[in-house]
Design a protein around this nucleic acid. Sequence first.
DNA 1: TAACCACGGGTCATATACTGACTACAAGTC
DNA 2: GACTTGTAGTCAGTATATGACCCGTGGTTA
Lengths: 209, 209
Amino acid sequence: MTTRARREREKEERRQTILRAAREVFLEEGFHRATVDSIAERAEVSKGTVYLYFESKESLLAHLLLEGLAALLGYLEEAYAPDRTLDAEERLRRLGWAYLQFFQREPHYFRFLMAVDRGRFRETVSPQTYRQVLEASLEGLNWVVRAIEQGIEEGSFHCCDARQAAATLWATLNGVLELMAHPLRQEMVGVTPDVLYRTAIETVIRGLR
Amino acid sequence: MTTRARREREKEERRQTILRAAREVFLEEGFHRATVDSIAERAEVSKGTVYLYFESKESLLAHLLLEGLAALLGYLEEAYAPDRTLDAEERLRRLGWAYLQFFQREPHYFRFLMAVDRGRFRETVSPQTYRQVLEASLEGLNWVVRAIEQGIEEGSFHCCDARQAAATLWATLNGVLELMAHPLRQEMVGVTPDVLYRTAIETVIRGLR
DNA sequence: TAACCACGGGTCATATACTGACTACAAGTC
DNA sequence: GACTTGTAGTCAGTATATGACCCGTGGTTA
């Protein structure tokens, strides 16, 4: 039936509407102060409908996080290009660029991931959700780790703890992205954000040689 | 309830989807050959849903016509500006311009009105629908009639049958609009459509003086 | 001419989606 | 420790959508 496709489309749209509303309310109020009623109201549905699409308030949070991370992972995997042969430095540059892309194209997800991962996140969600989020995050970092390990094997990077090095790169880039959101800081630094971003990547790469 | 507004919006959207589908199918197949099943399919709903929103196949046609005419009447009334004082010629120019606007902004309605009003329309619909459509059409023409009568009263137009003059203007403009849809004819004439349109209006007005 | 059949307008019992008043309970307040 | 408040989560009731079906019409064949 032609109808089938349309109905599924509409269902997915409603789901997304609810997720978007939840994201906004969580960002504005924080998870604890946010109420399911206000999410429902923002999404223009009844509370019952929210529970028709998501089993609990926490699962709204989990879906936001996991879908955001899934999107990021998509960007990273494509950048890494596992089935192409690229040298380690090239891979790192591409991964860094992908992260910037994610930041620019999915600003909501990015902001949300950043906002959630501070404060008492561990106590907020079930151990299960916590584990899933942790695993997805690690999976992201792993693309970077893999590129660095490749560089060590190839002899172009000096020997070091790859995970630690990956974390350094990640933290560095976060710092630059954070700066992008603050015009004042940007002006203080006096460099356009993308030059700064590129410089940051190159600096870390040089440090790894 | 916040929900209320959204639900009414969605209902109206569905209604419009069905109307649009009906318009397309009627134009492609003609009223008789068109089937309600194919309209439902195009609108991605079941036949039952079509009958939930419209009571019959004919009422689909009637709504398309009457809503199209209502839109046109809106343009005309605004152009005539009953509560402002304008001279007759200015009113005619504005009415002509409004008709062009309608043609450009509501091409679907325009095409549909043109297409339906030939062939065996009278036998196709109930006398009731026929009367309503006729009345709405006359109401449109009446704005033109009124402007011409005003010109006669003011002494700027020579005495004539206002209705007949209005029909002349209308037919003239239809001719130009028809031409607009045919690039070849346009090229033959060698004048840009809006110059032609303006000329046509001015010619008729001059003829009325 | 009569028997048949395919088509398509219109119906309605059923299925799906949505609602919001309600319950239960946790966290504060006196 | 009783009492209030606020909110996560439930469910009986309602609104909306579906498509198998009914039935008349107009065309076809014997």
